[in-house]
Amino acid sequence: MQPLKIIVIGPIRSGKTTISNFLADATEIPYDYHPTKGVRILEFEVQNIIINNKHITKDIELWDCSGDHKFENCWPAIRKDIHGVIFVYNEKSSDCLKEIQQLYDYFIASTFMKISHIKCNIESGGSKLKTDFASFISTILNKMHNYTNQEDKNVLNENILFAK
């Protein structure tokens, strides 16, 4: 079965890599800043996702995308076949709203209707972020299961998660 492709996007220095590493249980969570070059893909499993009253394990591809506009030419490839989007931004940055709006306009189709918005701090609320992420994955998989005959399986409602 194909993995779920979830992209992590947001402005430069918003914490995308830190959150991606945390969600993927990556061994290294650097606290010093190193900009992502284009995109990096983390592959991992999420266990105990409930689909139709059954517990399953699902393979995830988490695409940690650079916030640098010099990589905009990669956006079409990044957007292809996505199942969900995680927006990450720093609420203390006054410049981030314009950036988020541009990313939202490009990556989100009009059929994405509901956005889950969570506030997180990995150091003090990491377990809540993991729980919210598992719920997010479950929502995507349940919708995919319910819409298997739909022409475009990748355009789903409620497949956006904001983390700030």
Results as ranks from 00 to 15, higher is better:
I78W: 15
I41W: 10
D95E: 11
N121G: 06
H145C: 11
Q47R: 04
K70L: 09
G126M: 05
K58S: 13
F107M: 03
I7P: 10
N121W: 01
L62W: 01
M144I: 15
I56E: 10
Y104L: 00
I78H: 08
I118C: 13
V8C: 15
I50S: 10
K54P: 03
K153W: 05
V88L: 05
N73R: 13
A134V: 02
S66H: 09
I19W: 01
Q150L: 10
M1I: 05
H55W: 00
K119A: 08
Y89C: 06
K128E: 12
E61R: 08
T18F: 10
I29A: 04
N53C: 06
T57F: 06
T57V: 13
E123D: 13
K114I: 14
S94C: 00
G84Q: 01
T111I: 05
N53V: 04
W75L: 01
F71E: 01
H55N: 12
Q47L: 03
L4T: 13
L161A: 05
I9M: 11
L103Q: 01
W75V: 02
I56A: 05
V8G: 01
K80P: 07
I41P: 14
F44C: 03
S135V: 09
I137S: 06
I118S: 08
W63D: 00
S110C: 04
A77G: 14
G84N: 05
N154V: 06
N154T: 15
L97K: 09
N157F: 02
K98D: 10
Y104S: 06
F107C: 04
F107I: 00
F87W: 03
I122Q: 02
N149R: 07
N159V: 11
N48Q: 11
F22A: 04
S93Q: 09
T17Q: 08
A77R: 10
R79I: 04
V85A: 00
S135L: 13
